[in-house]
Simulated scan of single mutants.
Amino acid sequence: MKTQEISVPRPDKPEAPSRIVIGEALPLLNTLLAGRRPIVITDPNLAASYPELIGRYPHIQIGLGETQKTLTTVEQVCRELLRMGADRGSYIVGIGGGIVTDITGFVASVYMRGVSGFGFVATSLLAQADASVGGKNGVNLDGYKNLIGVFNQPDFVLCDQTMLSTLPARELRAGLAEAIKCGLIGDAALFEAFEGETFETLTGNPELLHRILVATVGLKARVVAADEQEHGERKLLNLGHTFGHAIEKCTRHYLHGEAVAIGLCVAAGAAVKAGLLTADEEARIARAIRGMGLPTSIDPTIEVTKSQLIAAVEADKKREAQEIDFVLPSGLGRSVRRRMPLTELEALITDIL
């Protein structure tokens, strides 16, 4: 399998960019941790699947699922670090999916006001394609996504594709939604890689999946390098997330990537109404999403109203006063960010949700 490294500049450490390694990456871990005092944060599934790997290091397990992504879990981990004698010279490694990496990055940033460093072994496709890259580390509050957090990039992210073999198909599908999103934002060739493929043909082709991962991470790395703390261009990465997060909050039925897939279709429909996207392009987006086995709309049997979703959007961290940044595709490989009143957004998505 090919292995490729992508660097993301860190303004606070210009001499040491964040390193993302994609392919056969896991063998690098021992070298990266040489001379450090690592403590691993992981979850029970990873501990069971990789006992030899986790057993090499002192480790802490957190629970499974989105409900664990809270300040309560952060507090529990910090207490365990204190019990283990961890200090500012300790080094924290998150081995797991996006929930593990988010908790790890946040803990590493706040425990004793920050430890010597941290890195990730990203084991889910969602984590490899998105969650572990770029330095956003946050937890939820009352079901609202990532409302509390920090910007702090890891020293390294190891994206070993062989670790994806243990993932359920549903988790793999959820990760592909973030790759489709990146293609829509700024890489038409990446989006087109999904067209004509099915979930089975794509995931059964390691070389194609590798190319998609490299392109996805490469695009995100370029965006983060230009705007690490999301003052402008990085907000484009929120395409599909405004309503995706609202769907997660209001239904508790969908995985993050599944909700983002629906959010992409909402944004595409709104872009057609706004005159930014053609109906044919909207149809191509929906076909690509369906081809990966992802949902394009909310299941009609789920009891959720448009007013509930709008109320969740109003609490989104992207809102300022009565306005919100909403990202719309303006083509297949182009997107724009529009700041609009919440009332305008509600009118724009009428009959779409």
Score class of each variant (00 low, 15 high):
G97C: 04
K317H: 12
F191E: 03
R19Q: 14
A312C: 09
A34Q: 15
G331M: 06
I41Y: 01
R338E: 14
D155T: 04
T251W: 12
M112E: 13
I6T: 11
L213T: 02
V327N: 00
L81I: 13
A177Q: 05
E323Y: 12
I92Q: 01
A279Y: 03
G96L: 12
K13P: 03
G105L: 08
E66D: 15
M112L: 15
V214Q: 09
T162W: 09
M1C: 10
Y91W: 09
Y111C: 10
F191N: 06
Q76I: 04
A177C: 08
A226V: 08
P11Y: 09
L176G: 01
L126H: 04
L309P: 03
L208A: 14
V8M: 01
F243A: 03
G23F: 05
K318S: 09
N152A: 14
H253A: 14
A177Y: 11
I185N: 00
A270E: 01
G204R: 10
G149N: 07
G275A: 08
V223C: 05
T73L: 04
Q4G: 07
C182G: 03
V327E: 00
V77E: 03
I41H: 08
A221T: 07
A179W: 02
R211E: 14
Y111R: 04
I39Y: 02
F120N: 09
T31F: 11
G175P: 02
S297Q: 15
E52Y: 09
P206M: 07
E66G: 13
E320D: 12
E192H: 14
E52A: 15
G240C: 13
I212Y: 05
C265G: 07
K2R: 15
G240P: 09
F199P: 00
T201N: 11
L277N: 01
I289D: 00
P341R: 13
I95E: 01
K69A: 11
T296E: 08
R79Y: 11
L264P: 00
I212C: 05
R36S: 08
I212V: 15
P154S: 11
C182K: 06
T67V: 13
D12C: 10
G134V: 05
P9M: 07
T301F: 06
H256R: 04
M163F: 13
L264K: 07
L190Q: 01
T104I: 04
A279L: 15
T162I: 06
D316G: 08
Y144N: 07
T296M: 07
Q61N: 14
A189I: 06
G63A: 13
S109G: 13
I39T: 05
C182T: 12
D155K: 01
D12H: 11
G96E: 06
K220H: 05
K235Q: 12
I349M: 05
E233C: 05
G240E: 10
L264H: 02
H245G: 08
L328M: 08
